[in-house]
Nucleic acid binder design. Structure first.
Lengths: 167, 167
DNA sequence: ATATGTGCAAATCTTTTGCAAATTC
DNA sequence: GAATTTGCAAAAGATTTGCACATAT
C-alpha cells in the first residue's frame, strides 16, 4: 500500500496538509545555545526572522528585514550567520531553480525533508514531502553506502494552473 | 569550507547504480540540428567537449579546454552556449553541493535522471540512479499535478571510504 | 581577560550585457 | 542580404575577506 505524498505548502506556509502529520520546526535559538554557540543581538535578530518567516528568504531580503529592526546590522554579518546556521545543519539552502538570478534561499530545517517544485511560468514554489522521498533517501544511504547530511531535491516545470492557462 | 582533497573526478558508475541498465546519452549535436539551431565552430567545439567529457565541467573549465583547441573562443560564448543547451533541455545544471565555490557544473542529459552524492570530506561525486527515484518523480508529477521539466537531486554527506577513515 | 563576533570597505568570483564586427543560412 | 552570433570590455550580482574595534563569556 503505497502512500502518496503531500503537498506540504504553497509558496509560504509549512504547516499541516491532508492526512500528514504537521511538520515541526525546532527552535533555532535553542538549537544554537544547545551547541554552545555565542549569542549576540545580531544572531538573535537574524535567527528570529528566519524562524518566523513564512517564505524563503535570500540573503539580501534577510538583511533588509533585519535592517528595518536595527539598522546597525551589516551585510557581512548576515552571510556569516547564514554560514553558521548551515554548518550547524539548522537551515537548508535552496536555489529554487534560479527562477530569478543566482542567489540562494534559506529555510529553517523541518522535521521532514521536502522537495520544491518551481513553476517556470508563474514562479510558484510548491513544497512536497512524501514517504517515497524518505524511502529513496534510505535507499541511497544504504545502497550507496553514504552518510547523508543534506538533501536537496528541486524540480522545475509547470504547475497545474499554468498548464491549464496555456492549453 | 572544508574539503580535504582535490575534487576526485567522477566516481560514478552510472551503469551500476541502483539495479539498472546502461544509460545512454543522445548526441548533442544531432539534437541541436534537429532543432534547427544555427551551427558555428564555437558551438561545435563546446558541444563536442561536453559530449565527450567524463566529468562534470564548470564554465571556466569548459572555456579552458576549448581555448586549448582554439584560443579565439571567448568566455561569453561559453556562457551563451551553456544557456542555449539549457534552454533546449539538453544539459543539466548542477551545484554539486558547492563543494568548491558557487559555480555551476554541467553534464549532457542522460536517458535516466540520476542524483549526485557529494562527499564533504574527499569531494568525490557519486552518481546514483534508481527505480525509486523514477517512482518518486512519477508520484510528484501525478499527485502534485506538476509537469516536470528538470529534476535536480543533490545529496551531501560522507562516503564509505571517508567514514572508514574517520572511524 | 581572552577568544570571538562585527562593521566597514574593498576584493573576489561567477555570470551577464551592450555594441560593433564577423558569420551563417 | 538579413538575421544571428561573436569578441571584447565593462558591468552586475552575490558572497567573502582583512582588519581595527566591540562584545560575550
Amino acid at each position: 500500500m503505497e502512500m502518496a505524498g503531500a503537498l506540504v505548502a504553497n509558496e509560504s506556509q509549512l504547516g499541516r496538509s491532508g492526512n500528514d502529520r504537521a511538520i515541526s520546526r525546532p527552535s533555532l535559538l535553542k538549537e544554537l545555545t544547545a551547541r554552545r554557540v555565542r549569542m549576540t543581538w545580531q544572531r538573535r535578530l537574524l535567527v528570529g526572522i528566519m524562524q518566523d518567516s513564512p517564505r524563503h528568504l535570500d540573503a539580501a531580503k534577510l538583511l533588509e528585514i533585519a535592517r528595518r529592526r536595527d539598522s546597525r546590522i551589516d551585510r557581512a554579518t548576515v552571510y556569516r550567520t547564514i554560514g553558521l546556521l548551515k554548518d550547524c545543519g539548522l537551515i537548508d539552502e535552496l536555489d529554487l531553480m534560479h527562477l530569478e538570478g543566482e542567489k540562494h534561499y534559506y529555510e529553517a530545517k523541518t522535521s521532514r525533508d521536502h522537495c520544491h517544485l518551481a513553476c517556470f511560468r508563474c514562479g510558484a514554489i510548491i513544497e512536497y514531502a512524501s514517504p517515497a522521498f524518505e524511502r529513496l533517501k534510505r535507499e541511497m544511504a544504504q545502497h550507496g553506502d553514504f552518510e547523508i547530511r543534506v538533501v536537496r531535491l528541486e524540480v522545475g516545470g509547470y504547475c497545474r494552473r499554468c498548464r491549464a492557462r496555456a492549453a
